[in-house]
Design a protein around this nucleic acid. Structure first.
Ligand SMILES: [Zn+2]
Ligand SMILES: [Zn+2]
Length: 729
DNA sequence: AGCACGCCGACT
DNA sequence: GTCGGCGTGCTC
């Protein structure tokens, strides 16, 4: 039995007296007693006996399904658990919808839909503002709103029942059907004509529609990658085959969804965060039984079972949201590769700024390399103009050049985007008399100064503090905010251009659910305005009226300790630059930097991401870094620094010895303190493994995990293994 | 990870 | 006297 427990092993159980109707099968979901509680597990193996004495065994309490969970799903769970060195039971729990995890039955479900009624006069609700508000919400959904969705909007069941009693709403039980079978033809709207490049890319995809065929679609922003996805999906849907489309976390917007849904008449379903648990299960089943032909979702959607797999598409394949950063640290793009191979189907990875991993596979010929270089708007992507931050005064982080460019953009009736990868007002609060700096009490980091609302906040833990009136060290009142974040730049720009709307877009300003969408809508209306924002703004949103992009500081990744920092920051720069002049107007991109002579930055500005990526790949090859080696990172974490270091040393020593004995060529670096050693009062220590071959890395990581599981000291600290780590944080 | 057991400090 | 702090150990 694979059970929800971090223990990397299976548990033996006796069968129920009556076998289930389908007979005992691997993949059946069951309820079993485990310790002092009951849990939901999955039959992982059938055996005629156990190594445990009979009296230690307990019996299965209940079989939950009349058929095993889908084979492809089981295979993927096994693969992921093994590849990422994780517990199979935990992996399966994570990979199944919450309802199944909780032991609810599959199939035949209904949900309560609430529909608005018009009793004639709205006066009765005047004395019940909350109910009036709820009624207004229902009016926006004339086809009904699920009960769960209503409560998700912050209303109570009582309010619904009250509305029902007064005749303003009625309840209706409906079968959940995420995917209605298609009627009529395949397409709801015709495909768009392709340019020459697009047509030849699609032709390559058509060469091998029914076998494993990994392709990297490298296409600049606005070159029409989505149209290729749509026409590939169309070709497969015509054969009754399903396509699984992965998109980045912020990419699953109503607009993206609408683009897919409006093209096809066949059922398109989406796994997004707004779904209730029941709706999520329904989508999962619609995929598993083949009803849904197009399934769109973020990272976790890679675990959706497919009855008739046709292709897997990963949009913006370089996006960091595909990597899970806790628990099972899987990379959805990498699982997509494994899965496409298993199903023997095409795999399409799309990006304007491919990850070095995928680019290397394409350059070496392992993946087919499809390129789109033309933009329908005719003019080429804007070149980056580097401007020197040294020896110049800036206001809110902006150089005079940048400010005058913003001014002329506004005068010509266009919009400008100012990109700062730092939220808050200022990253540092310092005392001008004695040099004291506001630091977090729980982390090795500084507190960020916020103005809205005014407080000091740590961006690495939840600690918050009121703004001090005076320096706690020397009592001086001369406390100064050093550096700029989005809030400060917003304030500066508002001061410089008082008659223009300045939209700030970061995690703080868009915390409220729909405000981001609302701001975007307003921006898309096209009035001249300024946008100040973090990476949220950089990714794939349609900003057709932006003709100027200003990058406040491009130096983040230039001299960082993390060897991937430059790759990620080049991707970000290229993406932000892609926001400039998307529509009919050519754009400008101003990049402020302290290192205008940096060769990498120069290459990015002069020749673009593709060229920089290729030469950085060469540097990676020479340095023996990924993708030319395979890494695993062991993180050790404890409130006691000594405990974390001690275990790190023990583990590294044991590993070294074993590597020598078995003559396994795997490098082991560390233990070293993590880049920010203390976070939330926990000390972080790293050990990095690197090998030339995946299999060697796997063997070493597997040994290390088993050593840790058997080690008594290791139980006193928290540890986790990260296969193919993306960052050192 | 849960969840219990167990053994010592400061409270009604 | 007991309420609860978290160290230790187990889960077929
Ligand atoms: Zn001071
Ligand atoms: Zn902190």
């Amino acid at each position: 039995m694979a059970l929800p427990s971090p223990l990397r092993r299976l548990f033996d159980y006796l069968p129920t007296r009556q076998p289930p109707a389908c007979g005992w099968q691997v993949g059946l979901r069951v309820r079993v007693p485990f310790g002092r509680r009951e849990v939901v597990g999955v039959v992982a193996e059938l055996a005629n006996g156990s190594e445990l004495p009979h009296d230690k065994l307990r019996a299965i309490s209940e079989v939950l399904d009349d058929a095993p969970l889908p084979n492809d799903w089981q295979w993927l769970c096994h693969f992921a658990a093994r590849y990422y060195q994780h517990s199979l039971g935990d992996t399966m729990q994570l990979a199944m919808p919450a309802r199944l995890r909780q032991g609810h039955p599959m199939g035949g479900r209904t949900q309560t839909l609430w529909l608005p009624l018009s009793p004639g006069d709205d006066l009765i609700l005047q004395r019940a503002p909350k109910q009036a508000e709820l009624y207004a919400l229902l009016r926006q959904h004339p086809h009904g709103l699920a009960g769960r969705a209503v409560t998700a909007h912050g209303f109570t069941r009582e309010q619904l029942l009250a509305l029902q009693k007064k005749g303003y709403a009625r309840a209706q039980e409906t079968a959940l059907t995420a995917a209605q079978p298609a009627s009529g033809g395949l397409l709801a709207s015709p495909s768009l004509p392709l340019n020459r490049e697009q047509a030849s890319a699609l032709a390559v995809l058509h060469e091998k529609l029914e076998s494993y065929h990994p392709c990297l679609l490298e296409g600049v922003t606005g070159s029409g990658k989505t149209e290729i996805y749509l026409q590939l999906i169309e070709a497969l849907a015509a054969k009754g085959k399903q396509s699984l489309v992965l998109v980045p976390e912020i990419g699953l917007t109503p607009q993206t969804l609408a683009r897919f849904k409006s093209r096809f008449r066949v059922p398109v379903v989406a796994l997004h965060s707004g779904l209730t648990d029941l709706e999520r299960l329904d989508v999962w089943e619609a995929a598993a039984n083949g009803r849904a032909l197009v399934i769109i979702g973020t990272r976790s959607a890679i675990f959706t079972p497919l009855k008739n797999p046709g292709a897997i598409i990963v949009d913006e394949e370089h996006d960091s949201s595909y990597k899970q950063h806790d628990g099972l640290r899987y990379h959805a793009r990498d699982l997509a590769v494994a899965r496409a191979h298993y199903h023997n189907i095409p795999l399409l990875l799309g990006s304007a700024t491919p990850s070095f991993e995928s680019l290397q596979q394409a350059l070496s010929g392992t993946y087919r390399h499809l390129r789109l270089t033309q933009r329908p708007s005719r003019h080429p992507p804007a070149k980056l103009e580097l401007i020197d931050l040294r020896h110049q005064r800036r206001q809110g982080g902006l150089l005079p050049n940048a400010i005058s460019a913003i001014k002329s953009t506004l005068t010509s009736g266009k919009q400008a985007l100012v990109f700062i990868n730092r939220r808050g007002f200022a990253p540092t609060l310092a005392c001008h008399s004695c040099g004291w700096i506001a630091e977090c009490g729980q982390c090795d980091s500084r507190m960020t100064l916020h103005r809205q609302p005014p407080l000091l906040a740590c961006h690495h833990c939840d600690s918050r503090r009121a703004l001090p009136d005076a320096c706690p060290e020397c009592g001086s009142g001369d406390l100064r905010a050093l550096g700029s974040g989005t809030e400060r730049t917003e304030e500066t720009l508002q001061g410089l251009f008082p008659n223009v709307t300045v939209h700030r877009i970061d995690r703080d300003s868009t915390r409220k659910k729909e405000s981001f969408e609302q701001i975007l809508k307003e921006i898309q209306r096209g009035e001249p305005c300024l946008l100040v924002g973090t990476q949220m703004l950089a990714k794939g949103h349609h900003l057709p009226h932006v003709t100027l992009v200003v990058v406040v500081n491009a130096d983040g990744g230039l001299y960082a300790a993390d060897f991937r920092a430059l790759e990620h920051s080049a991707q970000l720069l290229e993406q932000v630059a892609g926001r400039a002049g998307r529509a009919a107007h050519p754009g400008r991109v101003l990049v402020q930097t302290l290192h205008p002579d940096d060769p990498h930055l120069g290459q990015l500005a002069e020749h673009g991401y593709g060229a920089l990526a290729r030469s950085l790949l060469e540097e990676r090859r020479l340095a023996g870094l990924p993708p030319f080696c395979f890494m695993a990172l062991l993180r050790i974490e404890s409130p006691h620094e000594e405990a974390a270091i001690a275990l790190g040393q023990q583990a590294a020593q044991a590993l070294h010895q074993w590597l020598t004995i078995v003559k396994l060529p795997v490098r082991c670096l560390g233990p070293v303190p993590a880049p920010m050693e203390r976070r939330q009062n926990r000390y972080h220590v790293h050990i990095m493994l690197a090998a030339d071959k995946r299999s060697q890395r796997h063997t070493a990581a597997n040994w290390l995990v088993q050593w840790l599981e058997a080690n008594r000291e290791a139980r006193k600290v928290r540890w986790s293994i990260d296969i193919d780590p993306q960052t050192l944080a």
